[in-house]
Amino acid sequence: MPRRWRTGVLLVLLLIAPGLVACGGDEEETLQVLAAASLTEAYTALARDYEFDHPGVEVELQFGSSTDLAETLADDAPGDVLATADERSMQIAVDAGVTASEPQVFALNELVIVTARGNPDRIRSLEDLDGVDWVRCADDVPCGRVALTLLDAAEVTAEPVSLEVDVKATLEKVASGEADAGLVYASDAVSASSAVDSVPIEGSAAVPAVYYVAPLAQAADTELAEAWIALVGSAAGDVALNNAGFTSR
């Protein structure tokens, strides 16, 4: 075989090999959970509990923007459970008829200020954002709407240097040191506690992000999907959620 061909064949093999392996007899059941990005730590911990309680079931977690997840589901993407960080995205899924039963509130998340470790700019409240390079979510995304409400209530006029596309991007700007401060959820501050300090915002408990979870109509095994929702609402679920910075319901 000419050398060029050999390389080509090798490349093709490399490309299809993962597919071939995945096709190999895998009798395990999977539960596909689509969840808001902020749930990454809490749901990853809960997935381990779930797999322990349900031998032979593999939990496949997919994290992303709530709106994106709801919309991909409305476009027939596969999934068994949907958990969103706001009511609006859950409503997209409900309106598309992909949920199997009434969505339930399972957690609340408050906005906090994050700063570099040690809070070098001594930020204590929203007023202190004046004069530093700070970031928040864009007006159109849920964390941005909450931020706007709080900033308006505190009559803060300081302008951010950037309106980030989602809360993780906002957090990352502070964690990487590009911005001095940012408005993110308490859960995000916990997930990055090695890189950022968190400062509570007065009144933010009154305007929390409300997290909804619902089983999906297309779930292959409805019981498995319901079991996930039961776990999230259980005492173990509370522990995982509280550890991750949420207020459980």
Binding site: V135, A138, P160, V161, S162, L163, E164, V165, A169, K173, E178, A179
Partner: peptide, 13 residues
């Protein structure tokens, strides 16, 4: 752009 510069109307959006 969005990773490095963020997003603000008039300067980086």
């Amino acid at each position: 752009t969005i990773t490095f510069n963020g997003n603000y109307p008039g300067t980086t959006q």
